[in-house]
């Protein structure tokens, strides 16, 4: 469960997450919750931590400093085991073996964790109206939807948009080819939807991290490209 989601930007409701918990309960599954974007939320979105929803199934929550604290290159993240730990003693022993075999994680950047998680959360400035992430999301989303044959859901969290290319219009049968052609013609690099195990070749992912002027430039080029592109 990737929540907030990459690549769609969806932030799942408590009801939906409870449904996943129920599914895990009835099929005796372990839930892996990737919550790396838990603080990158827009509008009135609220993030519900998976680990807070159940104590009778095993939940492995993953998070780190790469996104909200902008130190992706520091390579610092963590895994938290919660819930039915008493049924997972052998699994935990495996984790202990693996973590011992790799000795330890990068040490200098672990000193950033305490400061990052405690006190003032600077990411807030970016995700409210007037903040870079908020404004860039709005701009990229509306420019994408202005292109004929593209539809895109407005992300409620994370850093990505996952637009759909109208299959009737563009007839894209190979979305890696689409990404390749867009790169060669317009010098814009995106990731094709099938790269995220999306089953049909009709989506791609873009990040809205660039500044507004660069996003505007990129969207104009994408529009120009799609004006004539067919497969």
């Amino acid at each position: 469960m990737v929540n907030p989601n990459n690549p769609t930007g969806a932030v799942y409701s408590r009801d939906l997450l409870m449904g996943i918990v129920e599914l895990a309960r009835s099929h005796d599954l372990v839930v892996f919750a990737d919550e790396i974007y838990d603080k990158i939320l827009y509008d009135d979105a609220r993030h519900v931590p998976m680990g807070s929803l159940a104590d009778d199934i095993l939940i492995c929550t993953l998070n780190g400093l790469s996104k909200a604290y902008r130190v992706a290159g520091f390579r610092t993240g963590w895994l938290v085991i919660s819930g039915a730990k008493h049924r997972a003693r052998d699994y935990v022993e495996g984790l202990d073996i693996l973590s011992s075999m790799r000795l330890c994680a990068n040490v200098p950047s672990q000193h950033a964790v305490q400061t990052a998680l405690g006190g003032y959360q600077s990411i807030q400035e970016f995700i409210v109206p007037g903040g870079r992430l908020y404004e860039q999301r709005n701009l990229a989303w509306s420019m994408l939807n202005d292109i004929d044959g593209i539809s895109c859901v407005k992300p409620k969290g994370a850093l990505y948009l996952f637009p759909k290319l109208d299959p009737g219009r563009y007839r894209i049968s190979d979305d890696q080819r689409f990404a390749f052609d867009l790169l060669q013609q317009e010098k814009i690099l995106v990731v094709q939807g099938t790269g995220f195990n999306w089953p049909r070749p009709d989506h791609f992912r873009i990040v809205f991290l660039p500044r507004e002027e660069d996003l505007r430039f990129a969207m104009d080029r994408l529009e120009r490209f799609l004006h004539t592109y067919r497969q």
Partner: peptide
Amino acid sequence: KAVMQYCQELQIPDVEIDDIYIGNGV
């Protein structure tokens, strides 16, 4: 410890120091 306290804030129940593994990030 900081991660553990963060889990308390998030109301993830019963997380102890030994339930946390630091790794080389995402």
